[in-house]
Design a protein around this nucleic acid. Structure first.
Length: 284
DNA sequence: AACTACTCCTGGAGGC
DNA sequence: TGCCTCCAGGAGTAGT
């Protein structure tokens, strides 16, 4: 579930608590979590210089000229706790709850810092992957993904979105937007929200949107991501949005009323993904 | 090259 | 209560 806004929010929170800290120990009980090329122990003794993000990857830069490249995939979670067990920063998948006693049975790695604080890497589905590599190899690692522009950057314009969709013009809009080469960092939740906001049906062919619809979609993606990053990420638990929040507007709300027109929201399966639409607002 | 379906995993929900 | 099936979903990969 962690998409761009979740990873970005987590990056910002952790930046305030781990930058300047030196790693004194690292342990992992799940061998497949760290996929190389270097061993996790290579990080010990290094001080965190900064945390970066590209698409859904979080990248830690160390004074030792090494980098830790993380992908939380569906259910990865990071919790940073001080030496008395209080949360300093937490984010990613909300299960288990961020105040759960740690380590949890799904905690697969623990990083200890020079102030006694610890970072717990927890992932109930074991899909997350961590890579330790020389810092100068990070660009080479990222290059083959050919990520599209970051949605909040100046590089993300109507023209770049048009090119991205044109590349997948025979595909439906939803899978075309999930494709990280089109726009970096969108996932299932924020694609649903963006399409609803733009009034576009997820099954529309990506190559069939008009200039005006393209503008709407561009604006919608921008505002949905910006809102999530600045005002709080989507809270989806067990595939359902909380009735107490107005965001996300449609994702996880099958059977609820469309906030715009009142039509009952439907759930579809598009490209193997649970997809929420308003049959009135989102024109096929 | 473009696209689809399956795979990796576990826990929670719902049916009976 | 308990067993079973389904579902959640990012992205890599095998197959068409």
């Amino acid at each position: 579930m962690p998409e761009l806004p979740e990873v970005e929010t987590l990056r910002r929170a952790l930046s305030a608590t781990v930058v300047g800290r030196r790693i004194t120990a690292i342990e992992s009980q799940l061998p497949k979590l760290f996929v190389g090329p270097e061993e996790p122990e290579a990080l010990v003794g290094g001080t965190v210089i900064c945390l970066r993000r590209r698409a859904k990857f979080m990248i830690w830069d160390f004074s030792s000229r090494r980098a830790l490249v993380m992908h939380l995939k569906l259910s990865g979670q990071l919790v940073h706790r001080d030496d008395e067990g209080r949360n300093l920063a937490a984010g990613g998948h909300p299960v288990p709850a961020f105040d759960t006693p740690l380590p949890h049975k799904a905690t697969h790695a623990i990083m200890t810092f020079d102030d006694g604080s610890r970072l717990f890497v927890t992932d109930i589905r074991q899909f997350a992957r961590l890579r330790v590599m020389p810092a100068d190899e990070v660009p080479t690692f990222l290059e083959p993904f050919r990520f599209g522009p970051e949605p909040l950057s100046d590089e993300f314009g109507v023209d770049s979105l048009a090119r991205g969709l044109q590349r997948h013009r025979r595909l439906a809009l939803k899978p075309a937007l999930l494709e990280q080469r089109t726009v970096a960092g969108l996932g299932n939740i924020y694609v649903d929200e963006s399409l609803w906001r733009a009034g576009l049906h997820p099954l529309r062919p990506a190559g069939g949107v008009t200039e005006e619809e393209l503008e709407r979609l561009h604006t919608a993606i921008r505002s949905v991501i910006d809102r999530a990053v600045t005002h709080g990420v989507a809270e989806i638990l067990n595939g359902r949005a909380s009735p107490n929040h107005d965001f996300p507007a449609v994702h996880g709300r099958e059977g609820a009323a469309c906030p715009r027109c009142g039509t009952t929201l439907e759930k579809l399966k598009v490209a193997q993904r649970g997809t929420y639409v308003c049959g009135t607002c989102q024109v096929s």
